[in-house]
Structure formats: C-alpha cells, structure tokens
Design a protein around this nucleic acid. Structure first.
Lengths: 190, 190
DNA sequence: TTCACCGCACTGAAAATTCAGTCAACCCTT
DNA sequence: AAGGGTTGACTGAATTTTCAGTGCGGTGAA
C-alpha cells in the first residue's frame, strides 16, 4: 500500500480507466502517481512492462473484489449472495467504474494483443467458476454443467451490459434490472 | 461505391478490424486503400476525422447486416429466423469477424470518446428493436416490454460472448451453444 | 556506501500533418 | 473547334509533432 511500486500500479489503473490503454502516456502516469518518469522505468522496464503488470493487478483486484465475503451478514441466503455479488459489478462508484472500465480495456486490448490472452482467459475462468459455485449453492438440484453454463452466460451478460453502460448506451438502473431478471431466469431453470 | 472516399472508409474498417482503432496508422490505411496519405487528409481533415466517419460507417453497416432478410426461404418459422439472425453474429467468417471486431472497437472507443455515443446508442437501439420484433413474432403471447427486455439481454449477451470469443477466452462453438440455450430460455418465459 | 528516488534535458524513431505542385476534366470564349 | 482558364482530385516529399526511453548529476535516509 505505502509501497511506491504499488502506488504506480494504482495510478496506472486510474489513468487507464480515464484514458484507456491506448491513452496511457508515461508522462501522465508519472504525474498521476506523483513520481518521476525515471522511477517508472526503474521499477518496470518499459511501457509494455507496466501495462502487463497493471493488467495483472487489475485482474487480481477483480478477483478479490468478487471474492469479497459477506460483511458479517447472518441472514444471507445463497441466492441473495449470488445477486449481491453479481450486481456488485454494476454500480456507479468510482471503484467499480474504474475496475469495469479497466477490465473492458483489457478485453478490448486482448483482441489484438495475443500475449494478454492467457492471463485474461485464466481470470475469466476463475470468475466463471466462482459464480458457478454460488449458483450450485443457490440451486443444489441442478447439475454441475448446467451451473457452469449459467455462470458463463451471466458473466458474459455482465460484461456486455457493463460496456453498454460505460459507453452510454444503457442507463445503469436498467442494466441492473436486466441482470436481476437474468439471474432469476437462470435460477428458475436447471 | 467506386467512390474513392468510400473506398478509404472501407479500407479503414478493414484496418481497424485487423489492428484496432489504436492501431490505425495513416500510412497503413493509405496503403490498404491504395491511395496516398495526403488524399486521406484531403477528404477527411485529420486522423480524428477518418476515425469518426469510419466508426459512423461501421454502425451504418451493422444495421444492414442484421436487417438482411431471409434469402427466399419459405419453410422458416419465426423462431428459426430469430435463431439464425442471432447466431449470425457468432461465425468464423472473414466478414463476421471483421464486423464484430470493428463493432467491439467502436464500443470500446465510445467509453472514452463521448462524441461517438449518440450514434452508438442509436444503432444499438435499432438492433434491440429489431430483435424484439422477431421475439414478438416467435412468441406472440408475451408482452411488448418483456420482448424488449429479452432482446436487450440477448443482444448484450451476444456482445459479451463475442469479445470473449475474439479475445480468445471462449471457443466459438461453445459461445454458440450458450447463445442458443439463452434464446431457448428467453422464449420459454414471458 | 548503497538504495530508492528526483528532475529534467535529451535522443531517436515513428507518426501525423502540411505543402507545392501535377493532372485531367470541365467549362467559357472567340 | 481550338485554346485559355478554373477547379477538384490527387501525389511525393518535406516538415512538425509526439512519445518512449535514456543519461546523469544529485538527494536523503538507513
């Protein structure tokens, strides 16, 4: 946290969320992080280096983010947990916005830069897996493959709704509504 | 069509699909279009200019694409039509790949460039509307709002699956399978 | 002394953008 | 119908801008 290196990574996340991966300028990053340009090269060898580490950082954060346990709430049903965790991704707070934007950039970048793909696929897989588990807990009668498929659909839907929201094609409230309905629908079948 | 200007826009679409918006180099575009760099500046004032017009061009083309009517097939049920039209977006042909990639870039770019949003929102809305109509035809018992919501979910899902496919997180076959199931599910309720 | 860091001028290369001018097509004249 | 003038599309070769990345002298703390 007080680590300078981590500070740079956080700053990079902010800059990426503001300007996009393509818009990340070393100079602006230095300013945002409150350090000198040289220090960035001191810690990360080159632009590709910070990019790689930042995107890793983002996907780690996204993990924790989702994995965040219930805040001592006793009366939470598995189903409520599921809803809460998924709807977490569609919120207008600086943190979620920043994370979603950066995540979207990561996805978009990976379409053209193959080096990112492995990391991305792994993180995606973990996410899907986590959600599948929550689904299993919420609806124990279903089969594992069915849960996996539902989790893939729900997470892909979230990504789709998320870009639409961030790109101004869909109001947040509406996105949340659509997602809630989708969750209900997925739980209803199996 | 044979218009030089349009030729440049088409070339730009191809280059964007290949390299991404960030990867669009004026030089490469000129080569791709078979014209001189200067001509691009002659027709479109600057890089931002071609970008703007090309993205507009892409969203126009995306319309036609979906609106493409059934090729004289008589024995098509509304449901089959719907499936066909939606699955059209998840195919490994040069055209679909190019279109999906370019569309994804448009979306990703719009997150940071507000000028693109109106166009994008409009095109998205048209698409959703078209799908809602197909849904209504396939399942006349449902209400209009239900069809609209289902169409929003399905199209957002397609976008989500599409980037995952293009970024190598999801095999195409699997994406198609997931989409098919989602269509069935949406038709089952209402 | 070494480590983590600052500041900032500087280089080199890649891109974007400009510009002077060519070429062909099309009017007007006479 | 021959010629002169205007215009718009187009080019190739500069010129300018933008950045990533470097080099280096210096600072303060452990």
């Amino acid at each position: 946290m007080s680590d300078r290196r981590t500070g740079i990574l956080k700053a990079a996340t902010r800059v990426i969320a503001r300007r996009g991966v393509r818009g990340l300028r070393m100079g602006e990053l230095a300013t945002e992080a409150g350090v000198s340009t040289s220090l960035i090269y001191y810690h990360f060898t080159d632009r590709a280096g910070i990019l790689r580490e930042t995107l890793e950082f983002i996907s780690d954060r996204a993990d924790h983010y989702t994995a965040e346990p219930d805040p001592s709430e006793q009366g939470s049903t598995p189903r409520a947990d599921l809803e809460r965790v998924l709807l977490l991704e569609l919120q207008d707070t600086a943190e979620v916005r920043e994370n979603s934007t950066a995540w979207g950039e990561l996805r978009a970048t990976a379409v053209f830069e193959t080096e990112l793909r492995d990391d991305l696929a792994r993180t995606t897989h973990t996410w899907v897996h986590d959600i599948a588990e929550l689904l299993a807990r919420a609806n124990p009668t279903g089969t594992a493959p069915a849960h996996a498929a539902a989790a893939e659909r729900l997470t892909a839907l979230i990504e789709g709704l998320s870009v639409r929201w961030l790109s101004g094609s869909l109001p947040l409230d509406h996105a949340r509504l659509l997602l809630r309905d989708a969750i209900d629908a997925e739980l209803a079948r199996c």
